[in-house]
């Protein structure tokens, strides 16, 4: 089963290496990892999507909590959180017709064209992982040149925060 884990860490050099090394050494899987500033100065928020049963999730949480630079660890259940991922997709365009077709498609799924060139279009898509996968499938037939995905980020629904 997939889990989304939010980890608040001190913004120290090497902290990402500590977290990644722990997952690696204990054979925990990392599906995606995203890191960036949190609402508080000096604290970084890492979001990791991992796979495993309840026992594994419990071990991941406990082992993460042992890292001195880790401040909080929270499992964010899908039904109680908002999840997004951003993808940039570069698609090749061979003709004006094709380009129009793609642009209509992008419009329908509420993506944005962020770069245009004679041979290619770059499309920005945000959404859940499933949504992005569906869009990619739609665009496949045009020829996808490159994809860059951020990995999932998530917040719990409602007013609650991880850090009080």
């Amino acid at each position: 089963m997939k889990h989304t884990i939010a980890i608040l860490v001190k913004d120290h050099p090497g902290v990402l290496a500590r977290v990644a090394s722990l997952f690696n050494r204990r054979r925990f899987n990392i599906d995606s990892i995203a890191a960036g500033h949190s609402e508080k100065k000096g604290i970084t928020r890492i979001t990791i999507v991992t796979e495993g049963d309840d026992n594994i999730l419990e071990q991941i949480t406990k082992q993460l909590n042992k890292l001195v630079d880790v401040i909080r660890v929270r499992d964010l259940p899908k039904e109680a959180s908002v999840e997004r991922e951003l993808a940039l997709i570069k698609v090749s365009t061979k003709s004006t017709d094709q380009r129009t077709e793609i642009m209509q498609l992008v419009d329908t799924f509420r993506g944005h064209i962020v770069d245009i060139d004679k041979q290619a279009l770059t499309i920005e898509v945000t959404g859940t992982e499933d949504k992005i996968n569906a869009k990619l499938k739609l665009l496949e037939s045009f020829g996808i040149l490159e994809i860059s995905r951020t990995g999932k980020i998530a917040l719990a629904r409602g007013a609650q925060r991880i850090l009080n």
Binding site: P13, G14, A17, R18, S21, L22, R25, L67, V68
Partner: peptide
């Protein structure tokens, strides 16, 4: 040595 001892120390520090 920080990277090398990452999984075998409780914590480690490079003083900069």
């Amino acid at each position: 040595i920080i990277g090398i001892t990452l999984p075998i120390t409780k914590n480690n520090y490079l003083v900069m």
